[in-house]
Simulated assay, not measured.
Amino acid sequence: MIWRNIASNFLTLLIIILIAAAGAVAWAKRQYSQPGPSAVAACVQVAPGASLNAVSQQLSDQGVVSNGYIFRAGADYAGKSRDLKFGSYLMAPHASMEDIVRTITAGGPSTCGTEITVRIGVRENAVVLRDMNPDTGQYAEMLKYDPATQAAPEALIQATEKPDARLRVAVAEGVTSWQIVEGLKAASFMSGEIAKVPAEGSLAPDTYDVKRGEDRAALVKLMESKQAAILQAAWDGREMGLPYQTPEQALIMASIVEKETGVADERSRVASVFVNRLNQGMRLQTDPTVIYGITEGRSVLDRGLRRSELTRRTAYNTYQIDGLPPTPIANPGRAAIEATMKPETSDYLFFVADGSGGHAFARTLAEHEENVARWREIERARGEATTSPVQGE
């Protein structure tokens, strides 16, 4: 009888323990998957070779996770305890332990901490150092310098040496291939040389994450393959009846559209003007092509075009030649390429700057001349030298 009571009590106790254990497991699972305690974004840094224990302690100290033991147990249960990828990762407010484990084991470019970007622009290049403010989840610019006129600041050199710094190259729409090659020289965290300047228009403007020591020529090849894919996709989806016989001709037109307007909503309308002119056998008469014939894409022409330059016949002077120039005049972005393949339907044949950053469009020469006269008044009021009254400007 006594042994029967002992056995019954033991069984009851075991059931209670099992119920408690099941409850503890269920509670831990909820803790692992439910929103975390941090009300602000947090930058989590995983050092090279860091252990899960060290990372969990850091997360606990930062107030990002509520329980380091549950974090480690959850990662181990998911089979990810040995999959940590070093880097800096921005965690959203109230990120769960499950989300954090998924992020720091997936790897990829750092999304917070120190970021160094080489910006290649039409008029200038710059190297920019930014750091993430975890309280706002936004990057704050710490310093910026022009590599063409200034030596690299010591703070930037030190930041570049951080193993988890995010390194990037940002290429603006409308830069030439020569400008890109020259700009990549400012990326001191890269290596290697580029044997020759790639074909004009063949490089995709975008922001590229790179690794320390990555070969410059390899990045150029990536830009080429990306631009080729963008061009082919746009060509495959183009409208029928356009005056381009090949994707290469469309790329030439896209580069002209890119250089003519920086207003996103205008690209397809500008493209329609040039399409209409080609369809009617009119010359394009656009300044950017003439400028490219003068500079060969190696500099910016900081003055108006001279009458002698407009009347001189060159392969790129669309006042003097019929149709398109022989090559693109810059590297157009995706939006300009797509606008060229699907231009707006219009009967516009002319456009000129309107003083607001955009353009005034006209159907007839008389309308265009009125728009040009208004633009001349704006230039005079600003004290600017007047530019050539081109048909496609």
Rank of each mutant, 00 (worst) to 15 (best):
N371A: 07
L18Y: 15
G357N: 09
A172Y: 01
A155I: 10
L90I: 04
M142I: 07
E369C: 11
P109K: 15
V210H: 08
A50W: 00
A78L: 10
G174M: 12
L222G: 13
D83A: 13
G262C: 00
E161Q: 15
S96N: 04
A336I: 02
N133M: 07
L184R: 03
R4P: 14
L52D: 01
V210F: 12
N5I: 06
T261W: 13
Q138C: 13
N331R: 03
G357S: 14
A336Q: 02
D146K: 10
V64F: 12
R130S: 02
M223S: 11
K29P: 07
R82S: 10
P35Y: 11
R30F: 00
L18H: 12
C43A: 14
I116H: 02
L59R: 04
T295A: 02
Q31S: 03
P35R: 05
I116D: 06
A218E: 11
P343F: 09
A42S: 15
E224C: 09
Q285M: 15
E224S: 08
E367Y: 07
C112E: 05
G392N: 15
A24Y: 09
S202W: 01
P243T: 06
R130W: 10
K162D: 15
P37R: 15
G87T: 14
V257H: 01
A172G: 00
E98W: 03
V55Y: 06
Y319D: 03
G174V: 01
G358N: 05
Y319K: 06
A155E: 04
D215L: 13
T117N: 05
A353V: 13
G358C: 08
F189L: 01
L14R: 07
G87E: 01
T207F: 01
L84P: 10
K221P: 12
D99H: 15
T340H: 01
T117H: 09
S299P: 05
P325M: 12
R123S: 07
V270F: 07
T160Y: 03
F10N: 13
P243K: 05
G49P: 08
V352E: 02
N331H: 12
G87Y: 04
L90V: 02
M91T: 13
I256E: 01
Q150R: 10
L184G: 12
T160D: 13
G108I: 02
A254W: 06
I19W: 04
G201C: 00
Q245M: 06
D76E: 12
E182Y: 09
A28G: 06
S51E: 09
E367Q: 15
L301K: 05
I19H: 10
D146Y: 03
P48E: 04
G241A: 00
Q158Y: 11
I294G: 10
I378N: 11
V197I: 12
H359N: 03
P243E: 12
T160F: 07
I120N: 01
D302F: 14
E115N: 10
D322A: 07
L14N: 14
R267E: 08
Q179N: 10
V118L: 08
F86I: 06
T295V: 01
G49R: 02
D164W: 12
D302C: 01
H359A: 10
M91G: 02
V352P: 00
A187M: 14
V122M: 05
I252H: 06
F361T: 11
Q34S: 03
G68Q: 11
I6R: 09
D236E: 13
L11I: 13
F71P: 04
I230Q: 00
K85R: 07
G358R: 07
R382A: 14
Y139R: 02
Y139N: 08
